[in-house]
Every structure is written in structure tokens, then in C-alpha cells.
């Protein structure tokens, strides 16, 4: 078992639950021991830093300080979300690069009885750890159900491979890590030219037409290359390409159906793990038909594959009661 400190990030508990479930399912076969940082807080995404600098970095600093306290044996923090990874990595890097920022963050942390020594932790993305620590040989050993016949578009987005101050990726614009991993799983991997292009980030919430154009470029390219699926390592990329694909289609009067899954879901599938444990069916653009083509019957999700075209009458936004009823034992 290789031990790591683990920073899940907010979306792993909600919108990227499929990422979380599939990661938990593949930890054991991969020999990954992830110790969650106790009582971690949000990293601030791409929002806090445009409001105010010191508080934004103090918010991230609390996580680093808690991780440092908890570090025993491992000083490596693994983050599966690209935005969280980048925020934690940038905070550590900028506190070193500009000591005045480090001092301010630590003065703020002191108000909560905490302290962080910049450089004392190593911040890494989950994919980097799987490729470079666990290794592709070990991954290959565990493959019992090769993904033969599945054509995949490896999509990394921006914030894992860039700006990469600590030089962890093979290339900031055209990294091959995800390609290599998916090939080991037995899939056919297309040389996806837009693999590190932007998914639109928070623009889906702010300037939808800007975001829709970026999403359109991605799914259009994947479609032209006859990919069955796109594969991602970032909750924000998954959310934008998946959940906003319908609205994007309405916007451009197109009809794309390009599913996008997390790479851990495909690892799990190739390891022969029951698809039910891997969060399949949570995607809004169903991956079911693509998986059926290689003989995998993936669960359709709680309420069928696609969201209902004509939802039953609601009072505007979805009603809270639905969820609470479902939560009852």
C-alpha cells in the first residue's frame, strides 16, 4: 500500500460522485491508501481569488496546515479535482515564490492556531500519482476485462497540466499520461487534438454563449474522430461537457450525444469491478449505448439514462422534497 493524504474537494461529494465512487473502488486493487484530510474546507475554486487575495490563499492555507499536521509517513497530498489540485499547488508555490504572501497567510492562519511551512508538502494530481508512483505495469497486471473496441478521447482540460510550476507532466499542452493509461486498459485511444483545451470553466454560469462555444468545439472534435466517449480527470470539465451539453445543443441547434466519464470509472471497468460500484449512469449524456457495444451492461442510473425531455410540472427549479424522500431508509 502506498500512503497519501487525500483532499477530495467539494464536487467529489456531489456533482462528481461518480468520480469519488469509482476512485474508492479502484484504490484497493491499485494499492492506494488515501487518508482524507480531517475537516478540510473548500479550495475557493476560481472565485475567491478574484474577490480578495489574502483571504483566498488563507482559505487554501487552512487545508495545507491541516494536512501538514496530519502528515505521518506521507507528505504527499493527492487531489482528484484539477481546480483543487491547482489551487493547493499554486498556494504552496506562491508562498515560496513570494515570501510576503507566505507571511500574510501564516499570520491569518495563526488566528485559528494553525501554521503552514511552504514547501513542506508535495501536491499532486491523482492521475500523476497513478502513472508515476503506482505505474502502468501494476495497472496492466490488474486488467481482467480489457476495454477492447472502445474508442476514447482523452480529455485533460487546463488546470491539471498547466501552469505546472513543479514540472510534473510530460507536456503542459500535449501531455500523454492519460493516453498511455487508457491504452493499458485495452482501449483504442484517439490522438485528441483538443485534449487540453478549455471546457469553459465557470463561464457556463456567467457568459453561457462563450462557454457553449468552447464545449461545442470539444464535443464536435471528439465526434469527428468517432470517439465513443470522452474521458476526463476533472469534475468541472465533466460537469460542463456533460450537464451543459443539452443546453449547448439547444443553443446551436445541434444534436451531439458525446458521453464523458471519469478515468477512474474506466480503470474500474477494466479491472472487472461491478459497474454498479463505479458510478455509471450518473452522467446526463448516457454512456450506456457506447458501453453496451463492448458488452458492458452499465446501470442506467437512478432515473433512467437521459434526463426527461418533458419534465413533469414543477415550480421552476427542482423540488427539494424529491431528494429527501429518497434519502429515507
Amino acid at each position: 500500500m502506498t500512503h497519501y493524504l487525500f483532499y477530495p474537494g467539494c464536487s467529489m461529494e456531489s456533482s462528481a460522485k461518480a468520480y469519488y465512487d469509482s476512485l474508492m473502488a479502484v484504490c484497493k486493487p491499485l494499492g492506494l491508501d488515501l487518508q482524507e484530510i480531517n475537516d478540510w474546507n473548500c479550495c475557493g475554486a476560481t472565485e475567491y481569488v478574484s474577490i480578495s487575495l489574502t483571504p483566498a490563499y488563507a482559505l487554501i492555507g487552512r487545508n495545507l496546515a491541516l494536512a501538514e499536521q496530519q502528515a505521518n509517513g506521507s507528505r504527499t497530498v493527492v487531489a482528484p479535482c484539477s481546480a483543487c489540485y491547482l489551487n493547493l499547488a499554486k498556494a504552496d508555490y506562491y508562498m515560496r515564490e513570494r515570501p510576503v504572501l507566505g507571511e500574510k497567510v501564516n499570520t491569518a492562519l495563526a488566528a485559528g492556531g494553525l501554521h503552514y511551512d511552504p514547501g513542506s508538502l508535495v501536491i499532486r494530481h491523482l492521475l500523476d500519482v497513478i502513472i508515476n508512483d503506482i505505474g502502468l505495469d501494476k495497472v496492466k497486471e490488474k486488467v481482467t476485462r480489457p476495454l477492447t473496441g472502445l474508442r476514447l478521447a482523452p480529455y485533460l482540460g487546463c488546470m491539471a497540466p498547466r501552469p505546472d510550476y513543479d514540472h510534473r507532466w510530460s507536456n503542459p499542452e500535449y501531455p500523454t499520461e492519460l493516453d498511455r493509461l487508457l491504452k493499458v486498459l485495452g482501449a483504442e485511444v484517439i490522438d485528441f487534438p483538443l485534449k487540453t483545451h478549455c471546457c469553459g470553466g465557470h463561464m457556463t454560469q456567467i457568459a453561457p454563449s462563450t462557454a457553449f462555444e468552447l464545449i461545442r468545439r470539444l464535443v464536435h472534435a471528439a465526434d469527428q474522430y468517432h470517439a465513443d466517449l470522452m474521458v476526463t480527470l476533472c469534475p468541472m470539465c465533466q460537469m460542463n461537457v456533460d450537464a451543459f451539453q443539452g443546453e449547448m445543443n439547444n443553443h446551436f441547434h445541434t444534436d451531439y450525444h458525446m458521453p464523458i466519464l471519469f478515468f477512474t470509472q474506466l480503470i474500474g471497468l477494466a479491472f472487472g469491478i461491478d459497474p454498479k460500484e463505479l458510478g455509471f449512469g450518473k452522467e446526463l449524456v448516457s454512456a450506456g449505448p457506447a458501453l453496451a457495444r463492448i458488452g458492458v451492461e452499465a446501470p442506467a442510473g437512478e432515473k433512467g439514462g437521459e434526463p426527461p425531455r418533458k419534465p413533469k410540472k414543477t415550480d421552476g427549479l427542482p423540488m427539494p422534497r424529491m431528494m429527501e424522500e429518497e434519502r429515507l431508509p
Binding site: 461529494e13 485559528g112 443539452g246 446526463l284 432515473k303 434526463p307 426527461p308 427542482p318 429518497e326
Partner: peptide, 28 residues
């Protein structure tokens, strides 16, 4: 135009209706 997406996110349990609060909120 967003309703199908919102419903999808809820029915697939990808969005929590109630927020979670960290224990160390006072510290934060």
C-alpha cells in the same frame, strides 16, 4: 431550458439540497 439539467442532477443525486458545514467553521 435548464430545468431538464437541474432535474437530472437532482434525480441522479449529483446535487445536494442541503449544505454541509465543516466542524471548524469558527476557526475558519
Amino acid at each position: 431550458s435548464m430545468t431538464p439539467m437541474g432535474l437530472g442532477m437532482l434525480s441522479k443525486k449529483r446535487m445536494d439540497i442541503s449544505p454541509r458545514r465543516i466542524e471548524g467553521i469558527e476557526q475558519l
